[in-house]
Design a protein around this nucleic acid. Structure first.
Lengths: 166, 166
DNA sequence: TTTCAGTTTGTTACAACATAACATATCAAT
DNA sequence: ATTGATATGTTATGTTGTAACAAACTGAAA
């Protein structure tokens, strides 16, 4: 595992992982639910970077640790992690990412870079407010929202410009 | 085919279908692309109501008309219809709906009712504007956006209230 | 009218994603 | 020790989607 150069904003990813795992551990304790070995391993695998991860990739990567792992093993762990809010499902990719904002926990905007595969979560408060207004106008009661934007992130855009010049 | 009572706003659905097919026919002519029999039949099947339709359901329903139909038959037609903007893929359902706003053609908000399965498209201009601002803030270049909200529509909410009282 | 290129469809096979159903194991509380 | 709740093992299957190549169609140029 390396500190990727692909990340949309360069950062010490070790911190991301540590924070995510510590927070998950604490929240599980508070909620009286179990962060079992399998669940924690899946969470760690998801957090290896900021890419969206496929379920069957997780399955391959967990096999060295859990030789008995089958699809259900992964999907059950994913279900748990989603229910606890530790990860998000990216609907448009059939994939999963770690949640960067465990504490604030509001629904977020996902910016998915097709070039580097990073997914950035953004609270996007202004968007969420106008959405709330729209729901009220429509008389619509929200259970779940997925706001997924595909395109090219700022970092990749800049890289592409640099390459054009060079 | 009946004029459904489930629609989020009661309407003469025959008009929806006619408008969609006429507009599609005209746009294909203008663009020099072919609205073949298969493609038109798939479009008609999708437009039978305002529900999101699954690819394999379309496959079953087109077989009386196209006995040779296979998955690829449907997915090719769907790819074409999406490329022309006549239908949308609903990412969070792995399903497809007819586009209600062929002319204006901007990306829209999808309100997906889990009770009646209707999907309502809304231009939601205020939301789109704050989204655009967010993309600018992030330096993100958008290629495709999916804004999919699951919940209970106004009609079903009202029905549920009425049932509680009765 | 032939021929040629581009497009569409037929066909087979398979890849990728996800769940059902039932058995087994673990573990804390009674 | 028994029980109930939770978690995992295991097998099978269901669902969604694509690759690859062959055949047919279409329209325009030679």
């Amino acid at each position: 595992m390396s500190i990727s150069t692909e990340l949309s904003s360069p950062h010490n990813h070790t911190n991301c992982i540590a924070t995510a795992l510590n927070t998950a551990t604490q929240l599980c304790f508070e909620r009286g639910v179990q962060l079992t070995a399998i669940r924690q391993q899946v969470l760690e695998l998801i957090w290896e970077n900021h890419h969206a991860v496929k379920a069957y990739d997780l399955l391959e990567r967990i096999k060295p640790l859990q030789s008995a792992a089958k699809p259900a093993t992964i999907y059950r762990a994913l279900d748990f992690l989603i229910a606890q809010g530790f990860i998000h499902r990216v609907e448009s990719l059939n994939a999963f990412i770690g949640c960067c904002n465990l504490k604030t926990a509001h629904e977020q905007l996902l910016l998915i870079c097709k070039q580097c595969n990073d997914v950035e979560e953004r609270p996007a408060n202004a968007v969420m407010q106008s959405l709330a207004q729209e729901f009220q106008n429509a008389g619509f009661t929200v259970h779940h929202q997925a706001i997924e934007i595909q395109g090219i992130c700022a970092t990749c855009s800049q890289l592409n410009k640099d390459e054009e010049i060079a």
